[in-house]
């Protein structure tokens, strides 16, 4: 095993672990100002939306809204089911089925 690779992996593990761990461990010790708490409460919606948008609207890195973008097409029935039922498993099932269908067209 190459020593350089092990060194890189150790560095990577710190670079990924610290941003995950420090805010939770430090901020949970303090009484946070109400305005900051309000702001933190909006993070989930903002994060989910920020992660999702490029995954379905720019899967190859550039914005693509058309029939050749399978992730975009599959997300239409997913959104309909999710808005209507708010059911996670049903939405995932519809997404997988839609994708299988699109891959075999």
């Amino acid at each position: 095993m190459e020593q350089k690779v092990v060194l890189i992996i150790i560095g990577m593990s710190l670079a990924t672990y610290l941003p995950r761990m420090l805010p939770m461990v430090l901020l949970s010790k303090f009484n946070l100002p109400p305005l900051f708490l309000k702001w933190l409460k909006l993070i989930p919606v903002a994060v989910l939306s920020a992660l999702l948008a490029p995954a379905i609207l720019a899967p190859q890195g550039e914005i693509s809204i058309g029939l050749d973008n399978k992730a975009f097409i599959a997300s239409i029935p997913c959104f309909l089911v999710a808005i209507k039922t708010k059911n996670l498993f049903l939405t995932v099932l519809v997404g997988i089925l839609a994708m299988l269908l699109l891959q075999n067209l």
């Binding site: 999702l52 999710a82 939405t91």
Partner: peptide
């Protein structure tokens, strides 16, 4: 085969639950 699309579908559902 596009199985990884399960994660995008999950994000769609969870986003709708959070709005």
């Amino acid at each position: 085969w596009g199985m990884d699309y399960a994660l995008s579908a999950m994000f769609i559902a969870l986003l709708c639950i959070h709005i």
